[in-house]
Simulated assay, not measured.
Amino acid sequence: MSVLALRLAGPLQSWGSSARFARRTTETAPTKSGVIGLLAAALGRDRTADLSDLAALSFAVRIDQAGTRLRDFQTARHAVTGKAMPVSERFYLADAVFVAAVAGDDELIRSLHEAVRAPTYLPFLGRRSCPPQGPIDLGTRSGHDPVTVLRNETWQAAEWHQERHHKKALVTLPLLSESVGDGPRGTTLRDQPLSFDPNHRRYALRNVVSTTVDVPNPRFRPAQEPSGTTRPVPVPRHNPEALLTQLPPQAPLDGH
């Protein structure tokens, strides 16, 4: 089994799982359906294509930089009739950074790696209005599962965000993974993709378990004392018995 790691960063991201109609919300981290859609587009697959091989991939995501939630109002007109459409309320994550990992058959992961390096359709972070900041490819790992890869992946937050935490040698990051079989039961999320067909999109339920992982901060700087600061000299503990034990033995006095 191989794992493909992806850095998902950009000015705006939006990862909806239950968003419908005029209110389009976003989850706090990339959804499996959103990442699978990104990979399917990179491969050049049509929306009506079979997704069973991609949907079977194991998936996990780490929140390296949570970002800020934004709300926007959008207007639109019908493409055919020109009639004004209802005002929609849309939510985004600004300045967020995530590391996602998918695991599966070696050959499939190899083809996905090639696709994200030279995608047929450009990748987007949940919506077409949300392009990535730069290359999303972090490479492949062999013989590991997604959680293990994310526990060992370097911190991918922006430099200015890492600098804010320069006093911490380790930073604690949330990690979301899938619960399968007899594993712990987490939060139920409807983001397991079954079909991206515009006429009949379908998603199944998926259990998501939330944990944390500690990763080194590359910008950690130990606290330094200001120049000219005089450190107090430690005072030894008072122990008069020690002086008595160091006296040389004396001869007894005459007559005693």
Rank of each mutant, 00 (worst) to 15 (best):
V149S: 01
Q250E: 15
V213R: 00
K168L: 14
N207F: 08
F59S: 03
Q13P: 02
W15N: 01
V97F: 02
P226E: 04
L6Q: 01
S195K: 07
T211H: 00
E114L: 14
D197S: 11
H161I: 07
I109S: 08
E27H: 04
P86F: 05
L57W: 02
L253W: 09
T148H: 12
P146G: 02
V35T: 06
P86I: 02
L247V: 13
K32V: 02
M1T: 06
P240G: 09
Q156Y: 05
P11L: 06
P184K: 03
E241N: 13
R90E: 03
T212D: 09
G228H: 10
L93Q: 09
L108M: 13
D197W: 08
G183F: 06
V99D: 00
R127T: 01
T68D: 14
L39P: 00
G67C: 07
E153D: 11
Y121T: 06
A56E: 12
V80I: 08
S33A: 04
L6Y: 00
G126I: 02
F21N: 13
A40C: 08
A84V: 10
D72H: 05
P236L: 09
C130G: 05
V97D: 01
A41E: 04
P135K: 07
F98V: 05
R190L: 09
A41T: 04
E225F: 15
L175D: 00
A29E: 05
R190S: 12
P30E: 00
R110A: 15
G37A: 04
R190E: 12
R201I: 01
T26I: 08
P146N: 01
F59G: 01
L12Q: 00
H113G: 14
H144M: 14
F91E: 07
S18H: 13
T48N: 14
A169V: 10
A118S: 15
P249I: 11
P132I: 00
V208N: 09
V208W: 09
P184H: 03
Q162Y: 08
C130L: 05
G10P: 03
A103M: 08
V215K: 11
T230E: 11
P135W: 06
S58F: 09
F124T: 06
G37Y: 02
L138S: 03
E159M: 12
L244W: 13
V215F: 05
L253T: 10
A56P: 08
L170E: 12
A60T: 00
I36H: 03
T31L: 00
R90Y: 01
G126Q: 00
G126W: 01
G34Q: 02
R202F: 10
D137Q: 06
K168E: 13
P232W: 02
R71N: 13
S227D: 14
Q162M: 15
A115F: 01
N239A: 10
P30V: 00
E89F: 09
I63D: 13
H144E: 15
T140R: 08
L150H: 03
A96W: 03
R231C: 05
V87L: 12
R127S: 02
R151Q: 09
V87H: 07
Q250M: 15
E27L: 06
A94Q: 11
G186I: 04
S177P: 02
P198V: 02
